[in-house]
Computed example of a mutant assay.
Amino acid sequence: MPTAKPHPHAQPACRAVSEVLSRVGDKWTVLVVKALVDGPRRFNDLKRDIGGISQQMLTRTLRTLERDGMVARTVHPTIPPSVEYTLTDLGLSLSIPVLALADWTFANLDCIHANREAYDAALAAAA
């Protein structure tokens, strides 16, 4: 039986999708998008709201989202300068699946933990 030839663009497309998913599926990206969905926020406000994120990681995540066109950075001419971050239209469109994933996670977390415990117990019993 002849084997199917891979689509000539399959590998580049998979790489492109993988690259974008690795960025937008990152836990910090998800939490930043979730924090920005209600409107503009300042850096320290985001840092306080997103538990456990370091200043360096928040800076890196915001820069990546800005580079990809999902976050806009606005510098207000005050002394000292005030900087706000907000989701662009592209970022808002990303927030729809991101928030759905976050909601699904919270709704199923207890079940997932119970399944993990049962799996680990069965594995330990078989050993």
Rank of each mutant, 00 (worst) to 15 (best):
residue 1 M to W: 02
residue 1 M to P: 03
residue 1 M to G: 13
residue 2 P to K: 14
residue 3 T to L: 13
residue 4 A to P: 07
residue 6 P to N: 11
residue 7 H to T: 01
residue 8 P to T: 01
residue 10 A to E: 07
residue 12 P to K: 15
residue 15 R to C: 08
residue 16 A to W: 10
residue 18 S to E: 11
residue 19 E to F: 06
residue 19 E to G: 06
residue 19 E to H: 11
residue 20 V to C: 06
residue 20 V to S: 12
residue 21 L to E: 12
residue 21 L to I: 10
residue 22 S to A: 05
residue 22 S to R: 05
residue 24 V to S: 00
residue 24 V to P: 03
residue 24 V to M: 02
residue 25 G to C: 04
residue 27 K to I: 07
residue 28 W to Q: 07
residue 29 T to W: 01
residue 30 V to G: 04
residue 30 V to Q: 01
residue 31 L to H: 15
residue 31 L to Y: 13
residue 32 V to S: 01
residue 32 V to I: 05
residue 32 V to L: 06
residue 33 V to Y: 02
residue 34 K to C: 08
residue 34 K to D: 15
residue 34 K to L: 10
residue 35 A to V: 04
residue 36 L to H: 08
residue 36 L to S: 09
residue 38 D to Q: 10
residue 39 G to C: 00
residue 41 R to M: 10
residue 41 R to P: 00
residue 42 R to Q: 14
residue 43 F to L: 06
residue 44 N to A: 08
residue 45 D to H: 13
residue 45 D to T: 15
residue 46 L to E: 07
residue 47 K to P: 05
residue 47 K to E: 11
residue 47 K to A: 12
residue 48 R to G: 05
residue 49 D to T: 14
residue 49 D to F: 10
residue 50 I to R: 13
residue 50 I to K: 12
residue 50 I to N: 12
residue 51 G to C: 01
residue 51 G to Q: 07
residue 52 G to F: 09
residue 54 S to Y: 03
residue 54 S to V: 02
residue 54 S to I: 01
residue 55 Q to D: 15
residue 56 Q to N: 10
residue 56 Q to D: 11
residue 56 Q to P: 00
residue 59 T to A: 09
residue 61 T to G: 03
residue 61 T to Q: 00
residue 61 T to N: 02
residue 63 R to F: 02
residue 63 R to Y: 08
residue 64 T to V: 10
residue 66 E to S: 05
residue 67 R to K: 00
residue 67 R to W: 02
residue 67 R to C: 02
residue 69 G to C: 09
residue 69 G to F: 09
residue 69 G to Q: 09
residue 70 M to S: 04
residue 71 V to L: 04
residue 72 A to Y: 01
residue 72 A to K: 02
residue 72 A to V: 05
residue 72 A to T: 06
residue 73 R to E: 15
residue 74 T to R: 06
residue 76 H to C: 04
residue 80 P to N: 11
residue 82 S to L: 13
residue 82 S to V: 09
residue 82 S to A: 13
residue 85 Y to M: 06
residue 85 Y to P: 06
residue 87 L to G: 04
residue 87 L to M: 03
residue 89 D to K: 06
residue 93 S to A: 14
residue 96 I to N: 04
residue 96 I to M: 02
residue 98 V to H: 07
residue 99 L to H: 08
residue 99 L to Q: 13
residue 99 L to G: 03
residue 100 A to I: 04
residue 101 L to V: 09
residue 101 L to F: 14
residue 102 A to D: 15
residue 105 T to D: 08
residue 107 A to C: 06
residue 107 A to H: 13
residue 109 L to P: 01
residue 111 C to D: 12
residue 112 I to P: 02
residue 113 H to L: 14
residue 113 H to N: 10
residue 115 N to S: 11
residue 115 N to H: 10
residue 116 R to G: 07
residue 117 E to D: 15
residue 119 Y to H: 14
residue 119 Y to L: 10
residue 120 D to C: 07
residue 120 D to V: 13
residue 121 A to V: 01
residue 122 A to G: 07
residue 123 L to A: 12
residue 123 L to S: 11
residue 124 A to S: 13
residue 125 A to E: 15
residue 126 A to W: 13
residue 127 A to H: 15
residue 127 A to Y: 07
